[in-house]
């Protein structure tokens, strides 16, 4: 079975994916809603920025994040002024990296779902006496449910497989910032193929099951 260090890596990975997904859904919802409805001239710029992690090498992203989070970087200076620590090589830093890295995987399905609802159901709800907040929770949110399932699972699964960004800003501190994908890399480096197999297989299975859930659940929505 897994040794203690690998168990730590698994635990950190799951915790990172869960926290990142929650942050992503919270941040991604208003962003996706805005992108789906705005006529602002900045829409294209924001769209391009959100999609950037899809094409950028994770090391590039990680490099800039490292600079920003480091003690002399802009974010690092702010956090030092506020709390006294830097975020580089910490779990919080990993969350920030993961959120940026997985942003398009959450924002795109939500944007798509909000766009598909169109203005009509919200107008109908208004004529039936539903105020702004009520319309959002009573109509938009439930109608966007398939989009939320896709966004949550894609965000979670994509964070599970993160490597480059984590390596750049998290270092590889066992028990603190060492995640599964890096543990696998370490095992291979030290020719521990048995352990590498176990972790790799675990990630493969987990990712497959998650994607299978998305497709099954969302298909059922469409039929009923």
């Amino acid at each position: 079975m897994l040794n203690a260090a690998d168990m730590d890596a698994l635990w950190i990975t799951l915790r990172l994916a869960t926290v990142s997904t929650m942050v992503l859904l919270a941040l991604g919802t208003p962003l996706a809603w805005w992108l789906a409805h705005t006529r602002s001239p900045f829409k294209n710029t924001i769209n391009a920025l959100v999609a950037l992690p899809l094409v950028l090498p994770p090391t590039v992203l990680g490099f800039y994040l490292l600079l920003a989070l480091s003690p002399s970087g802009p974010v690092g200076q702010i956090t030092q002024t506020l709390g006294g620590t830097t975020l580089a090589f910490s779990f919080a830093g990993l969350v920030i990296g993961s959120v940026i890295y997985s942003l398009p995987f959450v924002v795109h399905p939500l944007q798509d779902a909000f766009g598909r609802i169109g203005p009509r159901p919200m107008e109908v709800a208004a004529t039936l006496g539903a105020g702004k907040v009520d319309r959002w929770f009573g109509v938009a949110l439930p109608l966007a449910r398939p989009g939320y399932i896709t966004a949550a699972v894609f965000g979670f699964a994509h964070t599970l497989g993160e490597f480059g960004v984590v390596l750049m800003i998290g270092g590889n501190i066992p028990g603190e910032t060492q995640v599964l994908s890096i543990a696998i890399y370490d095992h291979v480096e030290t020719l521990q193929y048995g352990e590498a197999h176990l972790l790799a297989g675990l990630l493969l299975l987990l990712s497959f099951v998650l994607l299978l859930i998305v497709y099954t659940v969302n298909r059922r929505f469409r039929i009923t």
């Binding site: 009509r120 107008e123 208004a126 109608l143 449910r145």
Partner: peptide
């Protein structure tokens, strides 16, 4: 008054029912 404050019934060209 905003739409939701007006006691109005509106039937659109397409039924526009809530699918959820």
């Amino acid at each position: 008054l905003e739409t939701h404050q007006r006691p109005v019934g509106f039937v659109f060209q397409e039924p526009s029912l809530f699918e959820h």
